[in-house]
């Protein structure tokens, strides 16, 4: 459903992705691991179309369509969802209003009817329950004053509501204790239906104990340097990323 070919991208004058290849089929979960600065988060931003992340060369196709040619909101409407490492606070816009606008924009793009208020509310309540987010969070400003863990759960709540084709989780485990991590993982796992694909970006193996990936890729210096099954994550856990520096002769 997604093919990334020889992708080079930069932020300002610094090239961060330097020839990244990745092939994802429907229903697959791909974990992307790597040291800080390897380009993990950049991949999520480039796929979502963030301003300032400029593609130098290469291609990204989603179900045969040129993803890089689409605007940020068109990518979301086409089924890309990015769970942010640092979700943005938007005071003055309630979570409810935000999600309603969002769900209906995506439904409209898919040719579906807008949800009625009652239908929306039911769906929102169910999603909150799944990630153990109290219902009054719907009335609060988007992420406004939420703790780190609440923000991460709010991201997964959105994932559940928006039913994307490809969800990119950008360090959804960072800053979470084990209990919160399990809640996030449970929410994500509930969305694995054999069709929906995932890119799980993480620094640590820990998250992958709860979200079992089909493939694990190690990214270093802007490209994937090693791919394997879940066992590769365990290897990283045991030996860290220092071996990358030796293997490549670059700073990890």
């Amino acid at each position: 459903m997604l093919s990334i070919n020889d992708l080079h991208a930069r932020v300002e004058d610094t090239t961060i992705l330097k020839g990244l290849d990745l092939e994802i089929k429907p229903g697959e979960v791909h974990a992307i691991m790597g040291p800080n600065g390897a380009g993990k988060s950049t991949l999520g931003y480039v796929l979502s179309g963030r301003d300032g992340y400029e593609v130098e060369s290469g291609s990204v196709e989603m179900n045969g369509k040129d993803l890089l040619d689409m605007e940020v909101e068109e990518r979301a409407q086409a089924g890309i969802f990015l769970a942010f490492q640092y979700p943005v606070e938007i005071p003055g816009v309630s979570n409810m209003e935000f999600m309603k606008e969002s769900v209906n924009a995506i439904r409209e793009a898919r040719g579906e009817n807008a949800l009625s208020s009652a239908e929306f509310l039911k769906k929102a309540k169910d999603a909150c329950k799944q990630v153990e987010l109290p219902l009054d969070f719907l009335k609060r400003g988007v992420n406004e004053g939420f703790s780190g863990g609440e923000k991460k759960r709010n991201e997964i709540m959105q994932l559940i509501m928006l039913e994307p084709k490809l969800a990119i989780l950008d360090e959804s485990d960072s800053g979470l204790d084990v209990d919160a991590l399990q809640v996030v993982a449970k929410g994500v796992n509930s969305q694995r239906d054999g069709e929906r694909s995932f890119i799980v970006v993480t620094h640590y193996q820990r998250l992958l104990d709860y979200i079992q990936p089909d493939y694990v890729h190690i990214i270093s210096n802007g490209k994937i340097v090693k791919s394997g099954g879940p066992e590769l994550a365990k290897e990283v856990e045991a030996s860290g990323y220092a071996w990358l520096a030796e293997a490549e002769g670059v700073d990890a």
Partner: peptide
Amino acid sequence: DALYYMLTRGIDK
């Protein structure tokens, strides 16, 4: 940042 966040949720600009 807030604008980008909203766009990633499919809301038009």
